[in-house]
Amino acid sequence: MLTVKNLNVWYGPTEVVRDVTFEVPAGRIIGLMGGNGAGKSTILKALSGLVVPRGGIIEFDGKSLVGRHPRDVVEAGMVQVPQGRFVWPGMSVRDNLELGAVTRTDKAEIRRTIDEVMTLFPTLSRKSGDRAGQLSGGEQQMVAVGRAMMSKPRLMMMDEPSAGLSPKVVEEMVAAIAALNRGGLSILLVEQNVGVAAALAEEAHILANGELSFTTTGRQLATDPQVIRSYLGR
């Protein structure tokens, strides 16, 4: 489904991602892990079209997405849930969700997708008229995931969906992500929380200093303390 080969990203004179290669097969959850500054979020920005890579290949179902506008990426079927949620705080929950479907025109289908979001996150149905900025961190994360669902993606890139959330809300979020995956959605999961990554990802790529260090399984990730100490800074 998603193929990334020899991806290179520079910010000005600084190389922040070097020759990163990995794949996200259809229907799988793949983890991308590493400490702060490892290059995880930059890779997602390159995949989303927010930064233009200096080199490498990004192919989604055989179609190159290198240097394409973020809208082209969304229309191709990939969407990102950014770190920090980035909801539109002054707008209602419903407006946030509806604008997530800005690339779609089928109104009946859009309403159906909103129902799906409300079913996955019942809290949002009770707060659909509230301003997103007034919601708790967990509820804002639900809005961010729901907004990404609105584009009907086939692959969702999630940047630290558990960051800053209470353990109970993290559990709910893990359950929601698992449910989305069971529904056929492929997920590229950037996460620093080893527990979350181990619970969700079948395979995890560990980054250090912008390079891919090694690949492991989710199960190994949770049980190998050396991996955690060496590459995740814990």
């Binding site: 990102q80 539109w88 604008l99």
Partner: peptide, 14 residues
Amino acid sequence: QATSENPTASYLVG
């Protein structure tokens, strides 16, 4: 309004 509040989020939804 969305573009004003958060251009990055706006890019990301298309």
